[in-house]
Write a protein that binds this DNA or RNA. Structure first.
Length: 425
DNA sequence: TCTGGGGTCCTAGGACCC
DNA sequence: TCTGGGGTCCTAGGACCC
C-alpha cells in the first residue's frame, strides 16, 4: 500500500517569538530594538529574551543575579513577569489561529499546532506566511511557523525557522539535510538525560536518531523515545489533541521574597495558596480528593542544611471547599514543619481531581455541600469583581513579609489593557 | 541578598491477593 | 528448616515539556 503525497498529513506549529518580551514591547515603543528580558516570579530567573539579549549571551533560565553585570553593561531592559497580560494576549493569538483551521491544539501559552492537511503541498508555505502576517497584524505578536508531516518534525521546522529568521519553514524533501544539522538535544522529547544517553552512543544529531535501530531505542528508552524516532521518520505517533481537557492536578506554590523560619508565616502562605487553588478548581467545576502540602529550604544554599518534605492527605469526600482544604493543609503543615530551617518555598497540590457534577453518595453531603457551595460562589463572585483576595480568611495574613519580589513590573494590568483602543483592520 | 511555576506521562517496585 | 508464582493495582519519583 502506498500513499500519495496529497494524502499525507501536514501539521503546523505556530510559536510566538520571545513571547513575554513581545508582550511587553506592545506597550512600550522604547524597547523595540534593544535587549530586553523578562524574569520569572520573584525576579528569580530569565525566562524570555529578545534576540538582542540572546546575542549578548544571556541564557535561558539563568538566575538574574548571575547576569546582572551583563545587564548593566549592555543596558538590558528588565521586566518582572505579568502573567495576566500574557494570558490575555495569548487568547487573542489563539483566536486568530482558530480562523485558519478548526483542528487546533493549544499546546502552551505561546504555541499551537494546526492541522493543515487540507492545504496542498505547493501552497502550504504561502499559507504559513498568511498565518504569520495575520497574527502580527491583528495582535502585534511576531511568530514563527514550522510545517511538516508530524508534530515532532514541525517542531524541528519551527526551530529552524526561528534560528535563521525564515519565518516559515516547510520540511519535506529537504528533511534529511536539515536533520543532520540538528542537535539531538534540541529534538522535542529529548531532554537532558536522553541527550546524554544518545550522545554517549554516538547519536549526536537528529538524522542519526531517525536512523537508529528500533530494538535499541525500545530497549534503551521507553515508549516515548520510540515514538519520537518514528515521528522523525514522518510516521505520526503523537495525535493532535483538539479537545480541551480538564486538568488532573492543580498546583499552587511560590518562593518567598525573604526566607521564612516561623510556622506562622508558612501557615499564611499555605493558606493563600490553598484559597487560590480551590478557586481555580471551582472555576473549572472540579473537586479534589487529595491535597499535598510541601515546604523546602533553598537547594542552592550551601551554608545551611537542606530540608524538604511533603505530606499527602486523602480526603474522605471530594470537595472544592476552601475552608475545608485550608484546614486539612494546615494540619498537614504541622506534621512536616521543623523548627530551625530557613524555608525558601511552600506550596500545595490538589490531585485526584474530578467533575463536581459526579458527586459521591454521602448522607450528609447534600446539605453540607449545598450550603458551602453558596458561600464559595459568593466568595468567587466578589473576588472576580473586586480583585483577587478581596475576600480572604484571617489566616492568610495581611502583612505578608514573605511576598514575592516584583521590582521591574511594567504595571500593565488586565483592566487597563482592556481599555486600550483596539486596532481596526 | 539573589536560582520560577505548573503541568503530563511513564515505570519500577511494593502491597496485596489467590 | 526452608523459602512459589503470577496477577493486579497503586504510588513515588523521574523525565520531559513550556
Amino acid at each position: 500500500m502506498s500513499f500519495t503525497n496529497s494524502s499525507k498529513k501536514k501539521v503546523a506549529l505556530i510559536d510566538c517569538n520571545s513571547f513575554y518580551v513581545s508582550c511587553e514591547r506592545l506597550f512600550n515603543p522604547k524597547i523595540q530594538n534593544v535587549p530586553v528580558v523578562v524574569l520569572s516570579n520573584n525576579d528569580g530567573c530569565v525566562i524570555s529574551r529578545s534576540v538582542e539579549a540572546k546575542k549578548i549571551g544571556i541564557k535561558m533560565g539563568e538566575p538574574y543575579f548571575k547576569v546582572k553585570d551583563l545587564v548593566k553593561k549592555n543596558n538590558v531592559q528588565i521586566f518582572s513577569s505579568n502573567y495576566s497580560l500574557y494570558g490575555d494576549l495569548s487568547r487573542r493569538v489563539m483566536k486568530v489561529l482558530k480562523g485558519f483551521s478548526n483542528k487546533i491544539e493549544i499546546y502552551s501559552i505561546d504555541e499551537a499546532f494546526l492541522d493543515l492537511s487540507y492545504i496542498k503541498d505547493d501552497d502550504v508555505e504561502e499559507y504559513g506566511k498568511k498565518i504569520r502576517d495575520r497574527v502580527l497584524k491583528w495582535t502585534g505578536i511576531p511568530t514563527s511557523v514550522g510545517i511538516s508531516s508530524t508534530k515532532t518534525l514541525s517542531k524541528v521546522a519551527n526551530h529552524i525557522a526561528k534560528k535563521n529568521k525564515a519565518g516559515v519553514i516547510f520540511l519535506k524533501e529537504n528533511v534529511d539535510d536539515m536533520l543532520k544539522d540538528f542537535d539531538v538535544g534540541d529534538v522535542w522529547g529529548v531532554g537532558k538525560q536522553l541527550s546524554k544517553l544518545y550522545k554517549k552512543n554516538g547519536v549526536d544529531n537528529a538524522y542519526k536518531l531517525k536512523n537508529i535501530s528500533n530494538t535499541w531505542v525500545k530497549k534503551s528508552t521507553n515508549v516515548l523515545g520510540a515514538k519520537t524516532v518514528m515521528e522523525l521518520r514522518g510516521v505520526p505517533c503523537i495525535d493532535l489533541e483538539t479537545q480541551e481537557t480538564k486538568r488532573k492536578s492543580c498546583c499552587v506554590s511560590r518562593s518567598f521574597g525573604k526566607k521564612v523560619t516561623s510556622i506562622e508565616k508558612l501557615r499564611e502562605s499555605i493558606t493563600t495558596h490553598c484559597l487560590n487553588a480551590a478557586e481555580k478548581i471551582r472555576t473549572d467545576k472540579q473537586t479534589t480528593k487529595a491535597i499535598t502540602v510541601f515546604i523546602r529550604t533553598s537547594p542552592f544554599d550551601k551554608n545551611r542544611k537542606y530540608y524538604s518534605n511533603s505530606i499527602t492527605i486523602d480526603l474522605p469526600i471530594a470537595t472544592s471547599n476552601s475552608l475545608e482544604l485550608v484546614k486539612e493543609s494546615i494540619n498537614g503543615l504541622k506534621k512536616i514543619y521543623k523548627y530551625g530551617y530557613f524555608y525558601q518555598k511552600a506550596g500545595i497540590i490538589l490531585s485526584k481531581l474530578d467533575d463536581s457534577s459526579e458527586k459521591e453518595f454521602n448522607l450528609l453531603a447534600p446539605i453540607m455541600e449545598d450550603r458551602s457551595h453558596t458561600l464559595m460562589k459568593a466568595i468567587d463572585f466578589t473576588n472576580a469583581k473586586y480583585g483577587r483576595n478581596a475576600i480572604s480568611i484571617a489566616q492568610a495574613g495581611i502583612n505578608n513579609t514573605w511576598k514575592m519580589r516584583r521590582k521591574y513590573s511594567s504595571k500593565i494590568d488586565t483592566a487597563s489593557f482592556d481599555s486600550l483602543p483596539k486596532i481596526s483592520v
